[in-house]
């Protein structure tokens, strides 16, 4: 297996990666690749399909590299439809990832936002940290990483919006009811979920949130990924932000 160390493919020297395994659940796919990449959980790589587009992805595993894709546009639809042997082109990692802290962390992931959190859980578990992993999905058929979190020896809890599996409701419900039992919060999900997390955590507890915006250049110049009103760029200053820095800069949620 080709091993890329962090930052080796800076400069747009793309690394060709071959899909070795595809695990599809509804409109979401886990693509296992034939390379490994040292990243900080929460950092992202740029994934390029020549002829289509380049899209940012926060890996859900690093050794071997795995990306978790939801079909939303033409490029992600093609990615979700990939088969073993298909090729894609990768540069990175970019951006700032999660800060790993000991203590008792709560990880809250919504939709494919769960991807960087399962990698974070794995890295924390390697440090001997035991926490709780909560995943929210629209329905039970796209449950992603509950099994993997359990295998790490963590407690893992699923919420589904339609109640088809796990608890019915949003993963932030768990946060609301159990905030006091943790020493740090990590979250990544759709905008409304992130806002709810920021509102619940405020500056009461160390809290980091990974934000999503349209990343075009990935290197902090085009401005397309700005978190409106804050002057912060998702690709350069994030994608992971401390709750207090977002709130201080005027991000609505506090």
């Amino acid at each position: 297996m080709e091993r890329m160390s962090g930052g080796c493919c800076k400069g747009s020297h793309y690394h060709e990666a071959v899909v070795t395994r595809v695990d599809r659940r509804g409109d979401v796919a886990n693509l296992y690749l034939d390379i490994s990449l040292e990243t900080v959980p929460g950092q992202f790589v740029m994934v390029w399909l020549p002829g289509l587009e380049e899209v940012p992805m926060a890996p859900s595993d690093d050794d071997p590299l795995r990306i978790t894709v939801k079909a939303v546009g033409k490029t992600t639809r093609r990615l979700v439809g990939m088969e073993p042997g298909d090729r894609l082109y990768i540069r990175g990692p970019y951006g700032r990832g999660f800060t790993r802290r000991s203590g008792r962390p709560l990880l809250v992931g919504g939709g494919v936002g769960a991807a960087p959190l399962i990698l974070l859980a794995k890295k924390l578990a390697e440090m001997g940290v035991e926490g709780v992993y909560v995943e929210g999905q629209p329905s039970g058929d796209v449950e992603l990483f509950i099994r993997e979190a359990l295998d790490l020896g963590w407690e893992a809890i699923l919420y589904t919006e339609d109640g088809s599996r796990g608890y019915k409701g949003l993963p932030t419900q768990y946060l609301e009811e159990n905030l006091g039992g943790f020493t740090s919060i990590y979250a990544c999900g759709p905008e409304p979920m992130n806002r709810a997390v920021l509102r619940l955590c405020g500056d009461r507890i160390p809290c980091e949130v990974s934000m999503e915006r349209i990343v075009k250049c990935g290197v902090g110049v085009c401005g397309s990924c700005v978190v409106e009103g804050t002057g912060l760029l998702v690709c350069l200053d994030g994608p992971v932000f401390r709750a207090d820095e977002l709130l201080e800069r005027g991000y609505p949620g506090g």
Partner: peptide, 18 residues
Amino acid sequence: PPIVVDLGYGYLNAVGLA
């Protein structure tokens, strides 16, 4: 995207006047 290329000794961009 891709709209920028990092060449090491410079950059190439085609943002398209977005």
